[in-house]
Simulated assay, not measured.
Amino acid sequence: MKLALAQLEVRAADRDGNLERALTAVDDAADRGADLVALPELWNVGYFAFESYERGAEPLSGPTLTRLAEAARDRDIAVLAGSVVEDLAESAADGEDVPDDDGLANTAVLFDSDGRSRAVYRKHHLFGYESAETRLLTPGESLPVVDLLGFRVAVTTCYDLRFPEQFRALDAKGADLVLVPSAWPYPRVEHWRTLSRARAIENLAYVATVNGSGSFEDADLLGRSTVYDPWGTTLASAGDEPTLVTAEVEPDRVERVREEFPALRDRRDY
């Protein structure tokens, strides 16, 4: 399976431009033969553009996700629509199962190549350090894992990387490919690399981290979107400029690595 990570240029207060860049990235990934393309965290409004959250919020049926579902179907490619700011009240009015019937959430949606929503993940761990996320958003409650393209695919978001127990819970559900849309800023480059690689190594699974590129008033995104294999080996990576990262990933490789090095079978509960 060919996986693409769309390291988008994300601009504050440029929702139309951000959407066009996302759609262009989907087209580019499809043209390169990718089976799945992933977008970064809050790429449509900009993670650090907190004043844009409320006016940029949409339900799951809103225009942004609808456009990406259509792009997935039109280009015959699965799309992880990064994450967007979801209006929970409007989603609830549409009959969606939401963690709260009011407020906002940092929500990632995974579409298959028919444009069908296969998984909805709302960020569990809200970032409080120099961020308004804990004040503005509601944390998610569910950890979906779905069969797609030969993998058991799960999604976590950015700050979730610092909580290994969440990845263990995904392993218990059979996840072997974890997609991590992010808005990780400078200067924490080594944290980004180390935590992502560790999550791959300790769970003997593919971990693909897709970060944004761009500058905000208080932060610069560091890019470095990367695909790690189950040994923690870097298969493909980027610098901090907008780009498309691609890598071939194999479901059978997860099984082979786990047979060769059966650390997961040796784990004990505490």
Rank of each mutant, 00 (worst) to 15 (best):
V85Y: 01
T24Y: 14
R135K: 11
R162K: 13
T107E: 07
A71F: 07
R32Q: 14
A38V: 11
E241F: 01
E20W: 13
V207L: 07
W231K: 12
K2M: 14
V210E: 03
D76I: 06
A71W: 00
F216H: 08
L42F: 11
R11M: 12
W43V: 11
R75G: 03
G33L: 02
P63T: 08
A72G: 09
D31Y: 10
L170F: 03
R197M: 03
Y53P: 12
L137F: 05
A69H: 02
S142I: 07
A198E: 10
T243W: 00
D252C: 07
V84F: 02
S182E: 04
A72Q: 01
D31M: 12
A247H: 02
R253M: 15
A105Q: 07
E20N: 14
I201E: 10
R55Q: 10
F167E: 03
S182L: 06
S131G: 06
L23V: 09
D240M: 05
V79K: 07
D28M: 14
I77L: 08
V178R: 01
E255A: 15
V180S: 00
A169M: 14
V26R: 09
A183W: 03
A175C: 05
T246N: 06
L195P: 04
D27C: 07
L161M: 12
Y47V: 11
A72Y: 00
L88V: 03
G150I: 10
D266K: 12
A169Q: 13
E86I: 02
L88F: 00
P185L: 01
G174I: 09
L137E: 00
F48Q: 10
L3S: 11
Q166K: 13
V37W: 04
L264I: 09
G56M: 06
A22N: 05
P139H: 04
L235K: 01
G140M: 04
D97P: 11
G33H: 06
L36W: 04
A72S: 14
P99M: 14
D269N: 09
S113R: 12
D87G: 04
A29E: 12
Y121G: 03
T209S: 15
R55Y: 05
Y228C: 03
Y53A: 14
V207P: 05
N203F: 05
E250S: 08
P262F: 00
P144Q: 04
L19E: 08
V45W: 00
L65H: 00
N203Y: 03
R265L: 05
F261L: 12
A78V: 15
L39S: 03
A175W: 00
V10I: 12
T24Q: 15
Y228D: 00
N18D: 09
A69M: 00
T134P: 10
A198R: 05
D252N: 07
V178D: 01
V210I: 13
Y270P: 15
E58N: 01
G214S: 09
P242I: 01
E141D: 12
V109F: 01
K173W: 04
D101G: 13
